[in-house]
């Protein structure tokens, strides 16, 4: 591989995993934007989504590699999205809504409780060992300019791009989106204008969790193994991506996810894999110190 090819290959790899981070980061950023809550259980929702995809493959008898099937692919993405949005709704209703008026940090504890619950529920059902995930996308490898591309990578780009476009449409061109922006600005005023804050918050959780679920299904197929511990570090990185881009900002989450993916793949390619996580966190800290609101975040005047 020539240096240029190596560079391009790391670029593509970074963009792929960055797209998955972006999908998860969108959920963090939406929830934070609307109720200023860091949803610490979001990474576990993502992980559960990955296992939902696996469950479908197992149920349909896809155990080995190499079976390409469009219905199964769409089915797994749909199941991941639908299953996780129900999960997100349940988490919001059981663990967050009753505590919305309580001191802000108490929600952090219930979020951790939810994380423990999901991790262990998945471990009890699927076992603690790594699980192999079959890919239902054709296993072709395209050689373009000396670098390797796979259909799965193309799929991940497409899903992520499409999702952001749909999400932007929802937020800026539907009544739900208008309600969401109103609640984000001022929950009390929104409520006085007849917006059902509870429903808007629930819808936000459902949407964000659906994205994490799809991210999970894609993540499983891309790495071909999943473990019940995967939610924690990936969630942490996606959250980092959301902050990097400017939390509360949808294109920011996308940009943050892609940048984080690139950063990781370049530091893994040019430095060493051991230090790639340091690079990610070091950049996060630096960005926050220089530009606390993130790359695309707006500066908010401090409310007194």
């Amino acid at each position: 591989m020539t240096p240029t090819e190596l560079f391009l290959q790391q670029l593509v790899n970074g963009l792929t995993i960055g797209s998955v981070y972006a999908l998860i980061a969108l959920g963090y950023t939406m929830v934070y934007g609307i109720i200023q809550l860091i949803n610490f259980a979001h990474g576990e929702v993502f992980m559960t989504g990955a296992y939902m995809g696996l469950a479908l493959f197992l149920a349909c008898g896809v155990a080995g590699a190499g079976l390409a099937s469009v219905p199964l692919l769409l089915g797994s993405l749909a199941l991941g999205a639908a299953g996780c949005s129900v999960l997100g709704l349940a988490i919001e209703k059981i663990a967050y809504r009753p505590l919305r008026q309580a001191p802000k940090l108490s929600i952090l504890i219930t979020a951790i409780g939810v994380s423990f619950f999901l991790q262990n529920a998945v471990m009890l059902i699927f076992g603690a060992q790594d699980r192999y995930v079959p890919s239902v996308v054709p296993a072709a490898r395209w050689q373009v300019m000396g670098i390797v591309l796979t259909p799965l990578q193309g799929l991940i780009f497409a899903v992520t791009g499409l999702t952001l476009a749909v999400l932007q449409g929802v937020v800026y061109h539907t009544s739900l989106g208008r309600f969401m922006r109103a609640v984000a600005q001022d929950p009390l005023a929104a409520r006085l204008m007849g917006v059902s804050v509870n429903r808007v918050v629930a819808a936000t959780f459902a949407l964000g969790s659906a994205l994490a679920g799809m991210g999970g299904v894609l993540f499983g197929m891309y790495y071909s193994t999943i473990n019940f511990h995967d939610g924690y570090l990936t969630g942490l990185k996606a959250f980092t991506a959301a902050v990097l881009g400017g939390i509360g900002n949808l294109p920011g989450a996308m940009l943050g996810g892609l940048l984080l993916g690139l950063l990781e793949s370049f530091s893994a390619g040019y430095l060493s894999t051991q230090w790639k996580n340091v690079a990610a966190f070091a950049v996060l800290v630096l960005v926050l110190l220089v530009r606390p609101r993130g790359l695309l975040g707006e500066r908010l005047a401090e409310k007194v």
Binding site: T110, V114, F116, F117
Partner: peptide
């Protein structure tokens, strides 16, 4: 699993 539930209930 129960520990997680306990945290939610206590809070």
């Amino acid at each position: 699993l129960i520990f997680g539930v306990l945290m939610i209930v206590l809070m």
